[in-house]
Design a protein around this nucleic acid. Structure first.
Length: 480
RNA sequence: GGCGACAUGGCCAAGUGGUAAGGCAGGGGUCUGCAAAACCCUUAUCCCCGGUUCGAAUCCGGGUGUCGCCUCCA
C-alpha cells in the first residue's frame, strides 16, 4: 500500500517517495517564543508527531528538525516592554512549549535549531545571494530580488503581476520592488544585532529556515510542514532563497501544510487577541484527550476550538481507555471467559487493521484511523466485558490478544497512550491505592448486608474525589 | 480587487464514481439493589441550480455562503 500525500506545491495527491530510500528528512516551522504558546501551535506539532511515528512504523529512518525563531521584532518589543533580556524571554517560552509538548506525548525533534545559533551561516548565505545578483544591500539592509528569481510564486500559486498591484507591503524606498523582502535588517544602536559585512544587524525572518534546512538536512528535503498561513510569503520566500543558493530543485519534495485552528470561526492568533493558551488546556485537561481532539479533523481541514469539542474528545478518550483496560484485565485473568463467537472479534481486528492503515496512507487521515480504533474498541468490549454469558471458543484468548496487540499498535502510531503508568507513581499513591481497596471492601460488605445507604455514601464520596466505582458481575472496578 | 480552501444528521467528522464510517449528544432495550461502564436497536440522501454517467456526496459548469492568504502569525 502506497502512502499518498497532498502536496501544496503540486496541488494534488502524490505518492510519497523519499529522496533516499529508507530515510525521510522533515523540517517543520516552529514558534517564535515571545509569548505563551496557544492551542493552535499544538496542531502541527501533534500532526507531525503522528507522521513521524507512522513513518517510523513503516520502517523509515526519520530526521525531524524544528526551529525556534529567537530573534525578531516581536521579541525586541517584548524585551523593551518587560525590560528582560531577549534570551531570557525566549528560553522561558521555549521551555514552556517543550513542557506542553512532553505532556501531549510529542516526541522531541532531532534538532531544535535557534536562529541566533546560525548567524554565521545566515551571513554566508546572504553573501552568496548577493554574489549571485539575487540580493542587494541598501542602507545596511539586504533584500532579496523577488522578481529575479524564476518561478517566484510557484508554491503559493501567485503571479508576480497579481501581487504587485495588490501589494499591501509597506512601501519602502529602500527596496527596489515592494515584493522584495529583507534577508538582513540593520539594527538601531539600541537594538540587538551581530556584526556583518553590512554593519550591525539581524537576520530577516524567512532566511533562517532556508539556512537551517541546508545545515541540518541538506539542499533537498522530503517534507516541509507548517501552518497554511505560512505558505505565502514565508515558504514562498524560503523556496526562492534555498533554490537560489543551492541550485537544487525542488528544495522540498512534499510541502505538507496543516490548516489552522480557529476560535469561533476566526483564526486563533496573538495579533487578533483571541488566544487560548496551550498550557492552560494541557494542565486542566487530560493531554491525551487534547491530542485526540487535535487528531479528530484531517490536517487539511480547519479545526474549531470549543469546550464542547474538547469535552466530546474527553468522552471519546475515556471510551478508548476503558476498552483498553477491559482487554488488559481480560488477558491478565487466566480464568476469564470470552463472550459470543470470538471469530467476530478476529474479523473486526482484521477490518480495523485494513481501515486504519488505509486511512493513514491516505494523506495521514487520522479521523478515519480513529474511527477504525473505535470500531475495534466496540468489538473488544462486546467480547470481553463480563456479562454472565460465555463462549466455549478455545481460541478466544488468542483472538483477544490479537485485538489487543493491534489496539496498542494503532494507539502507538497516533501517540495516544492509555497506560495508567504514564501518571507518576509515588509512595503516596501506593498508600492511597491501599486505602481505596479497603474502602471498596467495606462497601462490598455493606452491600452484601443490603446496607445500601452506607454503600452509596462511600461511592458518592469517592466519586467526589474523582474515583469511580463500578459494580460488575466479576467484582467492583475502580476507575480514576 | 487578486489567489486558494471548504460546505455531509442536534454538534464534530470520514468519504477521491457504485449506492452515506466513527465520536459526542438524544431516544428505546439488556444487565444491575441502585448507579456507572458495556452491549444491542434507533435518528441524513450529503448548500442550491444545471450537466456528464447505467450510476455522483464524490467529476464538470454556474450560483450562494464560510474561512484563509495577499502585513507579523503554527
Amino acid at each position: 500500500m502506497a502512502l499518498m500525500v497532498y502536496n501544496t506545491l503540486a496541488r494534488q495527491y502524490e505518492q510519497f517517495v523519499p529522496v533516499e530510500e529508507g530515510k525521510v528528512s522533515i523540517y517543520v516551522c516552529g514558534i517564535t517564543p515571545y509569548d505563551h504558546s496557544h492551542i493552535g501551535h499544538a496542531r502541527p506539532a501533534v500532526f507531525w508527531d503522528v507522521v513521524r511515528r507512522y513513518l517510523l512504523h513503516k520502517g523509515y529512518k526519520v530526521k525531524l528538525v524544528t526551529n525556534f525563531t529567537d530573534i525578531d521584532d516581536k521579541l525586541i518589543n517584548r524585551s523593551r516592554q518587560t525590560r528582560t533580556p531577549i534570551p531570557e524571554i525566549a528560553e522561558k517560552f521555549i521551555q514552556e512549549y517543550l513542557e506542553c509538548m512532553d505532556k501531549l506525548g510529542v516526541l522531541r525533534a532531532d534538532v531544535y535549531p535557534r536562529a541566533s545559533e546560525v548567524i554565521p551561516e545566515i551571513i554566508e548565505t546572504v553573501e552568496t545571494l548577493i554574489d549571485k545578483g539575487l540580493a542587494y544591500e541598501s542602507a545596511g539592509d539586504v533584500y532579496f530580488r523577488a522578481e529575479r528569481f524564476p518561478g517566484y510564486g510557484k508554491l503559493s500559486g501567485k503571479k508576480i503581476e497579481d501581487l504587485l498591484p495588490g501589494a499591501r507591503v509597506e512601501v519602502s524606498e529602500l527596496k527596489e520592488s515592494p515584493l522584495d523582502w529583507a534577508l538582513w535588517k540593520a539594527s538601531a544602536p539600541d537594538e540587538p544585532g551581530w556584526p556583518s559585512p553590512w554593519g550591525k544587524g539581524r537576520p530577516g525572518w524567512h532566511i533562517e529556515c532556508s539556512v537551517m534546512v541546508h545545515k541540518h538536512l541538506g539542499p533537498q528535503i522530503d517534507m516541509h510542514g507548517g501552518g497554511t498561513e505560512l505558505v505565502f510569503p514565508h515558504h514562498e520566500n524560503e523556496v526562492a532563497q534555498a533554490e537560489a543558493v543551492s541550485g537544487v530543485e525542488p528544495y522540498v519534495r512534499y510541502w505538507v501544510h496543516s490548516e489552522l485552528l480557529n476560535l469561533e470561526g476566526e483564526k486563533m492568533s496573538k495579533s487578533l487577541g483571541n488566544v487560548i493558551y496551550l498550557s492552560d488546556i494541557v494542565n486542566n485537561h487530560d493531554p491525551m484527550a487534547v491530542r485526540l481532539y487535535l487528531l479528530s479533523a484531517h490536517r487539511r481541514k480547519i479545526l474549531d476550538f470549543s469546550d464542547e469539542l474538547l469535552r466530546s474528545a474527553e468522552k471519546g478518550w475515556e471510551r478508548i481507555r476503558t476498552g483498553y483496560q477491559n482487554a488488559v484485565e481480560f488477558l491478565a485473568n487466566p480464568s476469564a471467559q470470552g463472550l459470543r463467537d470470538a471469530s467476530k472479534l478476529a474479523e473486526a481486528t482484521a477490518q480495523c487493521r485494513k481501515t486504519f492503515f488505509e486511512s493513514m496512507d491516505n494523506d495521514f487521515a487520522t479521523p478515519g484511523a480513529l474511527a477504525a480504533v473505535f470500531d475495534l474498541i466496540t468489538a473488544i468490549n462486546a467480547h470481553v466485558v463480563p456479562r454472565g454469558e460465555t463462549t466455549a471458543d478455545p481460541d478466544a484468548r488468542q483472538k483477544v490478544a490479537g485485538a489487543y496487540g493491534l489496539l496498542i499498535e494503532c494507539l502507538g502510531i497516533l501517540g495516544l497512550v492509555p497506560q495508567a503508568e504514564l501518571t507518576p507513581v509515588s509512595r503516596g499513591r501506593d498508600i492511597s491505592n491501599g486505602l481505596i481497596d479497603i474502602l471498596v471492601e467495606i462497601r462490598n460488605t455493606a452491600r452484601k448486608q443490603k446496607d445500601y445507604t452506607t454503600a452509596d455514601y462511600i461511592r458518592d464520596k469517592m466519586g467526589d474525589l474523582g474515583i469511580t466505582l463500578e459494580d460488575t458481575p466479576s467484582g467492583t472496578k475502580v476507575r480514576m
